[in-house]
Design a protein around this nucleic acid. Sequence first.
DNA 1: TAGATTGTTAATCGATTAACAATC
DNA 2: TAGATTGTTAATCGATTAACAATC
Lengths: 208, 208
Amino acid sequence: MADRDISQAVIRRLPRYYRYLGELVDDEIERISSGELSDKMNVTASQIRQDLNNFGGFGQQGYGYNVKYLYNEIGKILGLDNIHNIVIVGAGKLGMAIANFPSFNNRGFITKALFDINKDVIGSNVHGAPVLHIDALVKFINENDIDIAVLTVPRQGADEVTSLLLKSNIKAIWNFTNKDLVVPENVSVENVHLLDSLMQLSYTITSR
Amino acid sequence: MADRDISQAVIRRLPRYYRYLGELVDDEIERISSGELSDKMNVTASQIRQDLNNFGGFGQQGYGYNVKYLYNEIGKILGLDNIHNIVIVGAGKLGMAIANFPSFNNRGFITKALFDINKDVIGSNVHGAPVLHIDALVKFINENDIDIAVLTVPRQGADEVTSLLLKSNIKAIWNFTNKDLVVPENVSVENVHLLDSLMQLSYTITSR
DNA sequence: TAGATTGTTAATCGATTAACAATC
DNA sequence: TAGATTGTTAATCGATTAACAATC
């Protein structure tokens, strides 16, 4: 892997390509041209070809793209050929919901444990994963080959948990708190700012 | 409200400005310059001024911006001075989690009911909102002044529920299914594609 | 008044789209 | 071979940044 300087805009579109190609695989479609895919996805054929050619030439002139091959290649680019072990910090309603998401497990994102400070939930079990006290977090990450920490604590706890995570070997934080995290650049952060998203929706309603 | 053709990039940034200004209000900071805000938010001062001036001149030369005033104005732009009534379609773990999110209620997004087809949850009560059968959905939306439908059903149910929603007066759909919805242009859609987001994180880990 | 900082125009940069030669 | 469609270069479009005159 590892072409650097692929633009963020391209990376954001990759999972969407992967999704549509997955549907085509399910439908047992064998080949597709950028033009046909363009119609399905509502993006220009030009953009599709440009995007893919950031990672290499996956097509063939006069033929198009082999669906299954392209699907697998994009999967590899996205790192989906590897298992990613996950911990969820904050075993509230949202954390529990994420631990139970079947589509994550199906793609190789495996929740190994949840962490909380609430004694009522510590010791219980979510979809096979134990809920542990947050004191055990750093050790657990380092000893269980954990890639990704999901941050589903209340906003006020975000910074404290983050500085704890930074003491471990964590590679990435999936941040559901409505706060921007400050991390060194060898740690990736992907934000899911739900309230921001809802406000955008409110804007579009309001501005009609 | 209602300047048309504000770019999507600007709209995406508005909630973030709102968030930072909210913190400044809490800290009882009275005024701030685009330069200071730029340092805090890690965006250019130029961008801040450009963004705000899409909606009017909120600042004053030589002084900067009054924090509280700007906060309120952005709130109005985002439509947060109005109550938005919400229904959640799909009363699974994720739907329940969203119904319980305190920050939504605090901003005037009020969950009025949840809908499902599972008899085990129908009749129950989530944070004061009833769980009803999906057959009652259209009528409920039209009679209860519902703006926003949250879609937290499994992927396979997405299209069916969407076509049901389009029979109602719904204004916006907050889509948590991993599917792109097809709606007429008087209905707004905001996607939260969690699996896509997780895949992006996987990409950044993989491409180091 | 002098200093600070906005609002806004102009310059730059990057991303998207169009075009087309290469080639299967 | 002729037709189709890619990979890629060039043109366009839009968004970001820089600069500065206006003005509080």
